[in-house]
Nucleic acid binder design. Structure first.
Lengths: 147, 147
DNA sequence: CGTAAGCCTTCCAACAGTGTGAAGGTCAAG
DNA sequence: CTTGACCTTCACACTGTTGGAAGGCTTACG
């Protein structure tokens, strides 16, 4: 199977398959005489696994560990569970940060007349935040990388 | 004021100040004889504005628009409000995606014994998703860039 | 057999937003 | 004058994905 067919079958783009190979997430694919990468059903199976882990928000690093456990027949399910729950905690942390921002901004927007006049509490708040936000202050050094 | 002092006073790192200047988010700073960037209290005020907008999750593009409105004395507050609410909607959309992932994964983790045996519903699900997730399927092509 | 479409290959660049580090100039205090 | 703390620019890293260009391969059709 060519990379295009594997991409279609797995839902992972050809570009990403090559990228995953490059960073060592997946083993190097075998090559045809012409140098084309060749994939088996097994490979497609693995790519689909990766695709789903990605869809659940796992970063490549996490997917790497999941793949290791997946392949390891003597794994302990406790390790998988720990990995999953750590990721859930990470997701929840990010959710809380976003929620803080959203509610703060929503409160400010509610207080804005939204008319043709220039005065607006949103800009005022950005200019000089009032000490106590009605909602937990979203103004923090919260940083979040890509998923 | 040097860039270091402006950074300390505004909460925006010197690196980021230079970056913001480079991409045109802020005007080019004046220079001293030695070529050092010089900042006024006004500039620091603007940097603080940027810092807070960033803390509320606005992307540089959005901050650009906010700055324009901030400086525009004849702005209509309706425009500010529209911008803010559009961002809130964006945040909520991302929250929903993350929440979907978290709850799906949490449900799977709950079903995992978490012992020394290898069988684990988390891996099973990644291998071949059961048609209907208990929670809305988090498995989608959901993509989200940086904040 | 020739050729054109549609694959495949590699390499290079871009995105957001931030950080790291190197090589060198400058400023202030001792 | 030296030292250390600053400033300058430049280049590169990260994450994950996409886009394109230049060239080779395959396949199907005439």
């Amino acid at each position: 199977m060519n990379i295009g067919a594997a991409a279609k079958a797995s839902g992972v783009s050809a570009k990403m398959i090559r990228y995953y190979e490059e960073i060592g997430l997946i083993p190097q694919a075998g090559r045809s005489d012409a140098g084309y990468r060749i994939y088996s059903e097994q490979d497609v199976h693995m790519l689909r696994f990766i695709r789903r882990a990605r869809d659940l928000g796992f970063a490549v690093e996490g997917i790497h560990e999941l793949l290791g456990l997946w392949r390891d027949q003597s794994r302990r399910s406790a390790d998988v569970k720990r990995l999953a729950l750590a990721h859930v905690a990470d997701l929840r942390r990010r959710i809380a940060e976003l929620e803080d921002m959203a509610s703060t901004l929503e409160t400010l927007a509610e207080a804005c007349h939204g008319n043709t006049r220039p005065d607006c509490p949103i800009l005022s708040e950005l200019e000089a935040p009032s000490g106590t936000g009605a909602h937990g202050r979203a103004v923090s050094k919260a940083r979040f990388g890509p998923v």
